[in-house]
Design a protein around this nucleic acid. Structure first.
Lengths: 154, 154
DNA sequence: CGCTTGCCTGGAGTGCACTCCAAGGTCTTA
DNA sequence: TAAGACCTTGGAGTGCACTCCAGGCAAGCG
């Protein structure tokens, strides 16, 4: 029931793991262009604009000519959104969360509840993956040992 | 970079976790109709036919009138495919794996390599999720303690 | 025998999360 | 001041993994 997809930015679906969360935040400034933010977050500029359009970003500051100027707060928010994305939460639900944030303090309980159910979900997915790992390992050892493994038979 | 989606069969995106992998295999038989298999696996009959069309299933037996009759081996294969699906492997890659299986023994090394890279991927995703869990927990405790939490600030 | 239920097919449609395009304005640096 | 890189918008397009539809065949039952 759980489908996972990996962005095509990496070759094939095996992600390059040694990414090291590369993008250090350039402090000392509080104004970033969209392409800088794209570099820091790994999201495309398109996606950042789209996030704003659908209400997943609080309204971003603009320069006097209308260009976006992202703040460190925006970067923090995007980092958090990135974590939610990793949990598998649909964008629509993240928008709901963002709306609750905008609605103010009376949504605390709801927000907490959402985060807690997310937490449960993450725990369950970890368990699923660990289970999958077991299956994978036993299959790999089949290949390691045997000259002909019984295929289609677990 | 990792996008995860959860099927709509469950209300919202929070999956019902207490599913218990319910569907016990009814042994003593080796012939199942498509709707039985759909029940056992949680996949829809549509999806099962689609899997066969795209080459993700070995050719399934048919009754004298042309209806599919799935075997226990098919069920085993579907269970394994389900595990691969959980890892986030795209369907196209699973088809590749299925093709290697059909190609026979000379693909052992490739198959093993694929499984091993999958394994690495799963390990990495588990690590990501554990990291996410940490963020979630610290955010939840913010909500737990404070009357007004600093939003957009991690 | 007719009715309901289940299965078959190829092909079209859906929903999600981007991803890109066209047409134009802006910023930088030589 | 001119070239080229970068930014803006609304809307259209893409890829994936299903999901459904129309039209038809077949089996079981009262």
């Amino acid at each position: 029931m759980t489908v996972v997809q990996v962005a095509k930015s990496k070759p094939g679906w095996a992600r390059d793991c040694a990414d090291g969360d590369g993008h250090l935040r350039p402090d000392g400034r509080d104004q970033y262009t969209i392409s800088e933010v794209a570099d820091f977050t790994g999201l495309s500029a398109h996606t950042l604009r789209w996030y704003e359009r659908i209400g997943l970003m609080p309204h971003v500051d603009r320069s006097h000519t209308g260009q976006r100027r992202f703040s460190n707060r925006d970067l923090d928010w995007l980092a958090f959104v990135g974590k939610l994305r990793l949990t598998g939460m649909p964008v629509a639900d993240m928008v709901t969360y963002a709306e609750m944030v905008r609605a103010g303090d009376q949504t605390f309980a709801e927000r907490r509840a959402l985060l807690e159910s997310t937490r449960v979900d993450v725990l369950q997915r970890i368990a699923e993956l660990q289970d999958t790992l077991t299956v994978l390992d036993s299959k790999i050892s089949t290949y390691a040992g045997a000259r002909s493994a019984p295929e289609r038979t677990a």
